[in-house]
Design a protein around this nucleic acid. Structure first.
Lengths: 346, 346
DNA sequence: GTGAAAGCGCTAACAG
DNA sequence: CTGTTAGCGCTTTCAC
């Protein structure tokens, strides 16, 4: 019942504890075979607590994400796991629910339990990265930056470019009344996707009413509410760019509830693919990105940062995105949906 | 840079380490205020490694699931977190990817790092629960039993009843050629959902060809392949019960690829709801269950088991499921889809 | 009330 | 190559 210690193994094998310890770490010893036998017999497992007390290393890394439910982060987890699977690091996965407060708790707790952290901060003015830097915990940021604090290793995607090409796609169909459901605007993806949206419109000299930007907060419910508001506008948009996958679910639910048809009444383009996108009717056009690769790359950078104590320059890598065209976008109807007021402004 | 220790705090506050330790554990101490100040000043955090080396407790619990990507398990995570959020236990979340081998590794690793474990075993003849029992780690099983080993606290749902009522629902529309895409048959939900399916048919004296049971392994790809095979049958079914949500995604993709219409050509009912179910066309009828509650309950049972060292009887609780009717089921067409052979049996 | 000191299980000098 | 031993940071007797 009581877990065997290295002393038990030493006793069983008839050698000293240091010999056992050495063998376990890989040194050559005479009694190798006997020790292995004793280990197996006793089902000995070294105590991580004792090991880390001694070494100052925990053998664990944390992966802190705002939403495990989101398939994107689920994919990141897989990507990260695929790297550690080899190298003997345990992953601590934690969920912050897009909340700065929850993140602070989680990070504070994990701080002392891990050798390094992969973090997707809930927002850009979040103190967690700074806290990690202060505590000297090697950290790499995934998907979201921390401009307020120092420089960190970061694995981003081209949010600006992705949003921009989403809107360009809509423009290419002849849409002008293009709205967006943005995420949390003080997060990296939220901010840049919104800027990309604006940049695309600006470069075509299109000006839109402020209502055409609704803040959905990256969650399904926010997407639902935002779309409801959008469709209730006296002069609703003919196309919408939704800034992430979970909000898209909510938005589509609202669209369905109202009875608007896609793409006849409204073109929709999402950001981030989802297993369901293909089986929707119509299938959803989205901006897609290499999700697992993003997680894997981040983990590789973290591991490297953890071993190279060297104060290497921090790296900031930006992965490309691509448009996956399906069938949720089309030309605007000549007579826009609903009771369109005459002389609608721009 | 270097993390402060309790000795630093003691020094700063001008007391002994034991006084600091006592205060931190909640004892009344004269220097309370000074210690708090020192703690804040130094940003002291006790070392979990040292604490657990001393106490034998880690302050962490593991939550091991076969697939974080699956919204059901994501919900379980949330439910479990909602309980620990209060009580100061860190959750170690791990993913086994429905693999016994991976699970063995993960469990072996986590074994020594946690005080208790919530486990959804990949299969029923999986040695992990036994291993945990041997190691004396309090364990509660979620969603899946371990009949091969001893008794464990377990939080199940009524898989048999759910499957049965799914099939009854199909029967009530007049279907007789009802097929199923089963999960992994050596897992609890896989096994009982298949049995429930069979029981429902048996009680109506319906006999079906063996091809009407396809094994999809609970993953999307398996659902896709299974549905493809099903639709290629010379005498295909008029209705299908798909045993979990991820397989349903795959199955629907296959249906879409082939061009079969729901529910005209084929009625579909799934097991486990999903945010997307409502926005599908047609919306998907499913068997639903209290997911978060299942996770929360399991965590509560684990915490109780961890504190009550008492060898209390193991509990096995079974939660109810319910049918959420939407629009993916309807009566079979008088002339079944495809080139139906005359005199089809059964 | 408080402090001194032992020791949790392990690793890494330091002698042999 | 091997054994002895000193801690890693903390909690907890045991004396005061």
């Amino acid at each position: 019942m009581k877990a065997p210690t290295i002393a038990d193994v030493a006793h069983e094998a008839g050698v000293s504890v240091s010999t056992v310890s050495r063998h376990l770490r890989g040194d050559r010893v005479r009694a190798a075979e006997g020790i292995d036998r004793a280990v197996a017999l006793l089902r000995y497992r070294p105590s991580p607590a004792a090991q880390s007390l001694k070494s100052g290393k925990t053998g664990a890394v944390a992966l802190v994400v705002p939403d495990v439910t989101n398939p994107f982060f689920a994919a990141v987890v897989r990507g990260a796991e695929s790297i550690t699977a080899q190298g003997g690091h345990t992953i601590f996965l934690a969920n912050t629910d897009e909340s700065d407060a929850r993140e602070a708790e989680v990070v504070e707790d994990l701080l002392t339990r891990v050798d390094g952290m992969l973090l997707a901060p809930a927002s850009e003015d979040n103190p967690s990265p700074q806290r990690l830097a202060d505590a000297g915990v090697p950290t790499v940021l995934i998907d979201r930056e921390a401009p307020s604090t120092g420089r960190f290793d970061t694995v981003l995607i081209d949010n600006h470019g992705g949003a921009r090409s989403a809107v360009e796609h809509l423009l290419s169909y002849g849409h002008e009344r293009i709205a967006t459901i943005a995420g949390t605007v003080n997060s990296t993806p939220g901010r840049f996707r919104l800027e990309g949206y604006r940049a695309a419109l600006a470069s075509h000299s299109i000006e839109l009413p402020p209502d055409f930007v609704q803040i959905g907060g990256f969650k399904e419910h926010g997407g639902y509410q935002s779309m409801l508001r959008m469709l209730a506008l006296p002069d609703p948009p003919t196309a919408v760019f939704v800034a992430n996958n979970t909000m898209t679910i909510g938005a589509l639910r609202a669209i369905k509830d109202i009875g608007v048809r896609i793409p006849d009444d409204l073109s929709v383009i999402g950001f981030d693919d989802h297993p369901f996108s293909e089986i929707l009717d119509p299938p959803l056009t989205v901006i897609d990105r290499p999700m697992e690769q993003q997680g894997a790359l981040a983990m590789r950078m973290l591991l490297s940062r953890m071993s190279n104590d060297s104060w290497r320059e921090s790296r900031r890598v930006v992965l490309d995105v691509r448009l996956t065209e399906r069938a949720s976008c089309g030309p605007p109807r000549s007579t826009p949906m609903g009771a369109r007021r005459k002389g609608a402004r721009a």
